[in-house]
Design a binder for these strands. Structure first.
Lengths: 233, 233
DNA sequence: GACGGATTAGACAATGGTGTCTATTTTGAC
DNA sequence: GTCAAAATAGACACCATTGTCTAATCCGTC
């Protein structure tokens, strides 16, 4: 009664090595449970149940708990990476309004990379199990924030070159941009909650505004502060 | 051989209810182990061993694992809070150089509240177990970042009033200040590593510089206003 | 319909953890 | 020195989990 239950074995499942349906189902369920309970707290039975699969099937696909765990991590990282590059490709090199462009970019980044399920999962897991698996932490740092950071720095370098930003240290600016964008949301997504679209938009706009106050080139109409300084001098 | 070992029972231990030495020792050890292994992964035996105490003693002081866990959390929060207010009390209301003052403040805040042992512990624990104990998350948000945030907002309000900052939304600025200060360090302290004093200082200075680019009043007026105020007082 | 690989439920031993109990020893106060 | 409270080691029942094994069942393919 309390053991894994299997509703319908899904007749259409292809039996390939790479992407068998059961395999995916196990991976998803494992991600869910590992994220909720941590490595130690997650039980194979619970994962099997959530995946609508027998425990033995789990062991057939992944030799042991740790194998499964590592497979989950790699899977999530791959997905998050794909999302990141797809977003970076959308930034308009010559849009009209830098503030709007950056805000839209920040919203998309947060929604699809940082605040989404994968993002929360991987951060939580790294913090929970990073000490036990230093290897895991290293992979994450290079493939996660590391990639976002350098990609963003490159973007800022381009924008600086087109004279829309006034940045001296691109890497620093990238880190600060990410930090600002997450200032509001961190608390929400820290827990389980997912920020609403409204919160996402609002906090992104506030962050971008501050960022541009610090790093933006005054486009003549927004030169309030600059002019003030000139006049008082 | 592998059970709790007790070297010397420490003859000088007073037997009071409030702060018995064993009690403290257990609390410290429990914090350490819970932080390393999470709630599920930590075993009472390991805690007892690390505290140089028998398992039964642990159960004598704390009825069950969960009781101990909650006591640890409350203890850490109290300590972190005390540290925070002691730091806030040191900010000079009428210093000469705002950048230096803010930088020093940020360094101290990070060293004693955010990047130190307690800070890392509480963040890790909230993220690990927050879902299982929503109560824990709520306490943390109000007593931790919440208190820092409002205290910082109040400080910025004071500084704005003395015309050293140009801020419209104090709460937002406080959040952004904290975010900027942690932009660099987050990655380091995310794992187990403790940032060096040098890293702390450098990242704080970069953050404050950006913050002041966004929110600072042109420095020409700073000294004048300050002096005027002092003289009229 | 028959075959073979995948999948299933369920039993199983081994392990390790929790919380209780007891008999003994230590400790500080008197 | 005596005494009571606290702390100790160790045994214990109980439970959950891991990973293995087996016999039965499902599935697509031939």
């Amino acid at each position: 009664m309390k053991k894994p239950k299997v509703p319908q074995p899904k007749p259409g499942g292809p039996t390939q090595k790479g992407q068998c349906a059961k395999r995916v189902s196990i991976l998803d369920a494992a991600a869910e449970v590992f994220c909720r309970k941590g490595f130690a707290g997650a039980s194979i039975d619970e994962i099997a149940m959530e995946a609508c699969v027998s425990r033995q099937t789990v062991y057939n696909h992944y030799r042991e708990k740790e194998t499964l765990f590592m497979a989950v991590v790699q899977d999530i990282l791959d997905r998050a990476n794909a999302a990141l590059f797809s977003i970076l490709a959308t930034f308009p090199d010559n849009g009209h309004n830098l503030e709007d462009d950056l805000t839209a970019f920040a919203v998309r980044l947060n929604r699809n990379c940082v605040c989404n399920h994968d993002g929360k999962f991987i951060r939580k897991l790294v913090q929970t199990e990073g000490e036990r698996y230093p290897h895991l932490f290293e992979i994450w740092r290079q493939q996660g924030p590391g990639k976002i950071g350098t990609a963003l720095a490159a973007l800022f370098a381009r924008l600086s070159h087109v004279a829309r930003l006034d940045i001296d240290d691109f890497d620093l600016a990238a880190k600060q941009f990410l930090a600002l964008v997450n200032a509001d949301l961190q608390m929400i997504s820290f827990f389980g909650g997912t920020p609403t679209d409204d919160e996402l938009e609002k906090s992104a706009r506030a962050a971008v505004r501050t960022f541009l106050r610090a790093y933006g080139r005054p486009p003549a109409r927004e030169a309030g502060v600059e002019e003030l300084r000139e006049e008082t001098a």
